[in-house]
């Protein structure tokens, strides 16, 4: 855990720590929230020209006290060579590769503790989001219009939801997460609150278990 320097309570918990403490998977709303919040921080990191890294495991996703979610520095994992850097020292790891790694980790967090021969039934919109993030969608030619997260807005929200077939950017992911809510404009506050609660509740559980021990 990213802890206070004074040895006090940590300011962040990794997703892995959260899963282990609860010993159960995250729920769907938490999955939407972690996706949204993490893509938000990844967009901000891109704007600051930070090198892109794939998320290797849930240990590299940090949920902060204030509801921010970040990918830990050096999240590429020991088994993965550092990504090549281009001019300006900017990593050549693509945005879609980072999104793919995030989708896989989110799925595993939803699948935590399940046996190999078991599969969790996910709501279709969340399964679709993860399917597209992880790039596991099977091309059947029936849904090939692409998700255009362009500036034209979402005039027909339901139509847009049906047309999802490609996620190319953090913004695409965030738009889909926002479209999941009754009011899209509430996405920043709502998802931050969900992640803040996830941190707070996990800390409460940690404190409780420590006292019991």
């Amino acid at each position: 855990a990213a802890g206070g320097e004074d040895g006090g309570p940590p300011d962040a918990l990794s997703l892995e720590e959260i899963l282990r403490l609860y010993n159960q998977p995250i729920n769907e709303e938490q999955a939407w929230a972690v996706c949204y919040q993490c893509c938000g921080s990844l967009r901000a990191a891109d704007a600051r020209r930070r090198p892109r890294r794939r998320a290797a495991s849930a240990a590299h996703i940090r949920v902060w006290r204030d509801g921010t979610v970040t990918l830990a520095p050096g999240a590429g994992g020991a088994e993965e060579p550092p990504p090549a850097t281009g001019k300006l020292g900017y990593s050549q790891c693509t945005e879609t590769e980072v999104i793919e790694s995030l989708g896989i980790i989110i799925y595993k967090a939803l699948d935590y503790g399940l046996k190999e021969n078991e599969e969790r039934e996910l709501s279709p919109p969340l399964e679709q989001l993860i399917d597209h993030m992880a790039n596991t969608v099977e091309a059947d030619g029936s849904n090939d219009e692409g998700y255009e997260a362009a500036d034209e807005g979402m005039e027909d929200e339901d139509e847009d939801r049906r047309k999802v077939s490609a996620i190319r950017s953090y913004r695409d992911v965030m738009k889909l997460c926002a479209a999941h809510l009754p009011t899209e404009s509430e996405a920043p506050n709502h998802y931050q609150a969900v992640c803040r609660a996830l941190f707070a509740e996990t800390m409460e559980l940690h404190t409780f278990l420590t006292k019991i021990k």
């Binding site: 609860y22 159960q24 998977p25 729920n27 769907e28 709303e29 938490q30 793919e100 896989i104 799925y107 595993k108 699948d111 399940l114 190999e116 021969n117 078991e118 599969e119 969790r120 039934e121 996910l122 399964e127 993860i130 399917d131 992880a134 790039n135 596991t136 099977e138 609660a197 996830l198 509740e201």
Partner: peptide, 24 residues
């Protein structure tokens, strides 16, 4: 608190779990 129940079904070869497993 903060957790919801979820349904579990048998893993399917064409399901998302199998597809994710193939990626990792």
């Amino acid at each position: 608190k903060g957790k919801s129940l979820y349904k579990i079904k048998p893993r399917h070869d064409s399901g998302i779990k199998a597809k994710i497993s193939m990626k990792t």
